[in-house]
Design a protein around this nucleic acid. Sequence first.
RNA 1: GGCGAUUUAGUGUAGAGGCCUAGCACGCCGCCCUCUCACGGCGGAAACUCGGGUUCGAAUCCCGAAUUCGCUACCA
Length: 510
Amino acid sequence: MNRPVRVRFAPSPTGPLHIGGVRTALYNYLFARQHNGTMILRIEDTDSQRFVPGAEDYINEALAWLGIGIDEGVREGGKFGPYKQSERRDIYRKHVKQLLDAGKAYIAFDTPAELEAARNASPNFQYDASTRMSMRNSLTMPAQEVKRLIDEGTPYVVRFLIEPGRDVEVNDLIRGKVVINSSILDDKVLYKSADDLPTYHLANIVDDHLMEVTHVIRGEEWLPSAPLHVLLYEAFGWRDTMPDFVHLPLLLKPDGKGKLSKRDGDRLGFPVFPLEWHDPKSGDISSGYRESGYLPEAVVNFLALLGWNPGDDTEIMSMDELISKFSLEHCSRAGAKFAFEKGKWFNHTYLQNMDDSTLAEKFKPVLREHGIDPDKYSDEFLTKVVSLVKGRINFVNDLWDQASYFFIEPEEYEAKSVKKRWTPDMPGHMEELIKVLESIDDFSSAAAEPVVIGWIEKNNLHMGNVMNAFRLTVVGKCVGPHMFDITELLGKDETIRRIKKGINNIVPVE
RNA sequence: GGCGAUUUAGUGUAGAGGCCUAGCACGCCGCCCUCUCACGGCGGAAACUCGGGUUCGAAUCCCGAAUUCGCUACCA
């Protein structure tokens, strides 16, 4: 019973991969890698109604961006293919027949309208042992009639015949034994003749068995149907190789109640998708972590800690560290509210740990977006700029807000700072400052600073006011790194030019 | 409604009978640093859902209630 570990991530291509799905994929991946096992990506496209073009590519691209590697799948191939359920019709048909022949499933002709009527007539209606004998199915109709309807092409479904009154046990690796009585289960539809496709339950069990999956790691929403799946394994006679089940806690809305949904992202201003998604039907655009400036390593780290912890206080972990530390024992059982604020902090921390030159490279496209040609600047200059302002950014894009004045001179001056610092005597002091600066040959921060400070002190000027007025002319507002680090990078000529411009353009408030 | 799961500060979590006057992180507040804003350093407010047990002793074990979440489709 010690089979090589094989896990699968099995999304439906019904839209962009949700961040909760990403976490499920991540946990599967971590588990697989830790056990030197195999990670399978299976596309569960058994709902022809909800298929969305582009969704499958999106899944592949998102997982690749995050570094969640796939060993077997539609693109990767493998010995257990095809890995797309719509290409496995023959396999499902065969297995449906097997169940039918064994009397463990039956054919039902009830139309959606008839089922709807039954539900309306009795609010607690369930297609099960208590009702199936009053419905239109192969259990209640003569065999010839059933055959005739099928031959005529009447749409039908195959339902799983569930024996009532049995306690079905599911052993969940993070929740322990979960027992559900089979009486509360309905005769689930396993196959629909209309599109010649199975439903999730049948396809899932057949594929997991055939693909030799050893651990089913999925979201908690599947826990209630796990007993049904156990029953299906039994019906096929696969009980001895049935995989272990792991139901992960759900990702919940940060505020109110319920599962995290795509709406929450727009509502609260954070992405719920790994990559930006353009809905082909509505044309709506949903923001993605990648486009919002998150680093994939930070997203992975953040997600890993939502529902799992390493058992100690470690928070910053690389993918390799996550792989070695991951354990089902340290998975939590309760749903986790999606605390995106902490996601920002992870990104901030990863950005701080990145070398300045790497960050400078990432800054280049941002500069281009703002009409600045980064090639006009040396890498050394860009790296220095980045090193000065990186402490105050959460995203690569923030670099522009923090460093734009290194590339363009101020056109406007922040009113609040002008009011506070641009006192009537300032233009005069700035004229003097220009003279002082002109006399400095070595414009480095270390050399220029003592000269200017000395001038301020010698003349008994107000340090805060003069320095901030100086800053106002150069930066446009009173924020930013050490003043002389800025002027060192800007150079003497540019610094003096900006002071002159400030003297002419800053209009005192009141 | 039924069934299942769940429950430590605002959030994510540590804790597996005495090490808990409950730890860490994010966020929040304050102080320091300081030409500004940040960063950083230091400090602070803030939690064991409730009620019964068991025990010398319970956040940790048992029972009950409540809470929240999920499922209850010819969707996954």
